[in-house]
Write a protein that binds this DNA or RNA. Sequence first.
DNA 1: CCGTATCCAATAAGATACTG
DNA 2: CAGTATCTTATTGGATACGG
Lengths: 224, 224
Amino acid sequence: MKLEKTTKHRQKEEKRRFDDACGLAHALELLGERWAMLVLRELAYGPRRFSELKADLQGISANVLTQRLTELESRGLVRKVRLPPPASVQVYEASEWGLEAVPTIAALGRWAARSPLHDPTLRMSHVSVIMSLQTLLSPELADGLDARVGFRFGEADYVTTLHRGRLQVERGEVHDCDVVFTGAPSAIAAVIHGGAPLETIDVEGDMALAKRFRTLFPLPPKIG
Amino acid sequence: MKLEKTTKHRQKEEKRRFDDACGLAHALELLGERWAMLVLRELAYGPRRFSELKADLQGISANVLTQRLTELESRGLVRKVRLPPPASVQVYEASEWGLEAVPTIAALGRWAARSPLHDPTLRMSHVSVIMSLQTLLSPELADGLDARVGFRFGEADYVTTLHRGRLQVERGEVHDCDVVFTGAPSAIAAVIHGGAPLETIDVEGDMALAKRFRTLFPLPPKIG
DNA sequence: CCGTATCCAATAAGATACTG
DNA sequence: CAGTATCTTATTGGATACGG
């Protein structure tokens, strides 16, 4: 005989909980769904529009992106904002608290880079490239070095400031930089993390600084 | 007209990848599936048997647990070990590298505890309770305090050592402790994190120490 | 162009029964 | 105890149609 429907039909509202007071379990309820952490990553350096997110999160479908954004908004990680005229476009931005999770998820990325299964030749978004710089910067190697380094990825520009072994990041027009890297995100990542020749991207400014800069972000050792 | 089957039928082997070189995306391929991080959490303090995992991960089904363990094993985070006779039982243990992810996922838990949606009255496993102590310990509050504190949860015992603002953890028999807490995981968590009266659990040993100990693990402030 | 909503096929998760 | 096998339900992704 069959039990009617199922023993205890879950209500739609309380679907798929872990029912675990552990903070980690709650973290997974907040942003454990597929794509959710990657959406938050894309918002790490400022608000983005729906179509940008869809383009940079290669493979996500519009309906899933809509759902993830709605969920993240209802949970307080993301806000839906309409920019004032004349721009007047709709953007999504991470809340203060949502941004606080970013260093932790970046640390997860650093940990995963030690996996032999990791394939660094795949596509990267510009956000991923900038985040990898912040995450992999070695304070020892950067010790005593001050620099203002610009990035032009085509769809987005960043200015990063190296100071006291930390890399501060701002999105926006490149100006007053000591050196500027121009190229697709994957190409720039290949130069900085993969040891590809500097000539494969455009570099303007202090070439000696450019050469030193690319040595400051050592990949963690692969596991054996 | 319909395209035959689908435009590009994914091979089973390359199912559901993110196709993103970002370390975070790879982390999610390694342990982003439902339950995977919680399985790893359960292995944080030593090997566990299948039935223990199934019991402590309330709500997981046997087939999903089997699948998560198999996947984590094939990815190098977990090893399947048969203990030598006379025990001769099968256990699962985290690899060195797998253990390296634990502080990061614990940090995610700490972040999530600030959510107003977090319900700390739900069930906790003994591993979660011990991990919450390690994660929430305030080095400032614990400054200068040395203590050996035991926990008897019924199904498992731990000895924790407070030294130099850090809490070291070992699973195993309680002995030579300054104070020992005995009770269900949720009851002990309620006393230490929730401010429940000390009398709701068993405390043996230095009562003054017990009273101070429970103040060393402040919850992060709720957002609001 | 900016999204939303809907439908459908393919997977993943869940419940439960069952086997060595 | 340690899982498999099987069936049901939920989620995902892809395509496409729709509203501002």
